[in-house]
């Protein structure tokens, strides 16, 4: 008897039909706003090298509603990234004698402290201009 196996090549839409795959691609999609955010940082550094006036222009540009909306999206993406990333850390970091749950908790606490430190440092070194500019 001859064989005639049926083959169904994967379609581009494979991820639409299963919630686990949709969650996975949402996690990967956090890279898009965060990539643009990294480009914003590069631009800021470049404008800084052009002097104080150029740097001030850059700061003013970032006050535009469009950029504020973008940064709100970037914060959400980064929080989702952090949550999903730390969820997976115990699978890679296996330390005998320390449970995966403790490793996850440790990273969650470290992330809260880390973000708080950055925010604290920013508030100390960049005095807010009272909302006016």
């Amino acid at each position: 008897m001859t064989r005639k196996p049926y083959r169904a090549p994967q379609r581009w839409s494979w991820w639409l039909k299963n919630p686990a795959y949709r969650r996975y691609l949402l996690r990967e999609a956090t890279a898009l706003p965060l990539f643009i955010y990294a480009l914003v940082l590069v631009t800021g550094l470049y404008r800084y090298t052009q002097g104080q006036l150029a740097f001030t222009r850059w700061l003013e540009a970032l006050q535009a509603p469009g950029w504020l909306v973008f940064h709100a999206v970037a914060v959400a993406a980064c929080v989702l990234h952090a949550a999903t990333w730390i969820e997976l850390v115990p699978k890679l970091l296996v330390v005998p004698g320390i449970s995966g749950r403790s490793i996850k908790r440790g990273h969650q606490v470290a992330a809260l402290i880390g973000s708080a430190l950055v925010l604290g440092a920013a508030l100390v070194s960049w005095p807010l201009a009272g909302g006016a500019s």
């Binding site: 940064h71 990273h107 992330a111 973000s115 440092a121 920013a122």
Partner: peptide
């Protein structure tokens, strides 16, 4: 994961 959310808020909302 460790400093990202704080960093984005700092440069996106405080710095400007």
């Amino acid at each position: 994961a460790l400093v990202g959310p704080g960093l984005v808020v700092a440069t996106g909302f405080l710095l400007p």
